[in-house]
């Protein structure tokens, strides 16, 4: 069975907006991230386990606001107190999680197919985010993440890199089309390459 990505029929590749006369290398790029494993991990309030010692793919679950623990293939985003979002290229990690995380202590939910994921990269990436999200992006650093809204839609934003700025924006799959159009509308004035 083949699965369609959330933006399969919406994301159109090419150059758009005010891109003429600008160097392709410095142009904002927009792409859809696909084939990622996304798992929500919530530790129950009744659980007394120290989550700091729990490891997935060599990464600790750390209960620090905005923090992202990461390696080349996996990122663990802090989503709230005792609440994490694991994003990984390795699909088989799910087995490891199910073995390590006791049903009585943690709720583990595979939400890989319920998210639309847009990646934006470029020097003006923060400007795009500022247009729709009330968070103070001046404070945000590499390997930090946040939950907020973009034009009223709930999003999770993960800062992957800072040279140039690179972000992954997770929205609900059902809001994917609206979110995508919000992002490209905000990007038109700078010009962008859809990859």
């Amino acid at each position: 069975m083949s699965s369609l990505s959330a933006l399969n029929n919406i994301h159109v590749k090419g150059q758009f907006g005010d891109y003429e006369g600008k160097d392709d290398k410095n142009l904002l790029s927009i792409s859809e991230s696909t084939n990622l494993l996304i798992v929500q991990i919530v530790q129950y309030k009744s659980s007394n386990l120290s989550s700091d010692n729990m490891q997935i793919d060599g990464l600790n679950l750390r209960d620090n606001p905005l923090l992202v623990s990461s390696n080349d293939s996996t990122r663990i985003l802090w989503n709230g107190p005792r609440n994490w979002l694991l994003v990984s290229k390795k699909k088989d990690i799910l087995n490891e999680i199910e073995q390590k995380f006791n049903d009585n202590e943690f709720a583990v939910t595979d939400i890989s197919h319920s998210k639309a994921i847009i990646e934006i990269e470029g020097k003006v990436a923060k400007e795009i985010l500022k247009k729709g999200c009330p968070f103070n992006f001046g404070e945000l650093e590499k390997n930090q993440c946040l939950n907020s809204t973009y034009n009223g839609m709930s999003v999770t934003i993960d800062m992957l890199n800072d040279d140039p700025d690179k972000f992954r924006i997770f929205g609900l799959r059902s809001f994917g089309e609206s979110l995508y159009h919000s992002i490209i509308d905000a990007s038109l004035e700078f010009g962008y390459i859809a990859k």
């Binding site: 606001p65 905005l66 709230g80 107190p81 009330p134 968070f135 103070n136 946040l146 939950n147 907020s148 809204t149």
Partner: peptide, 17 residues
């Protein structure tokens, strides 16, 4: 617009609350 300091996440816009 109000800004509210969430004791978990830090200063955020009232829109999020």
């Amino acid at each position: 617009m109000l800004h509210i300091k969430c004791p978990h996440c830090g200063m955020r816009s009232q829109n999020e609350f």
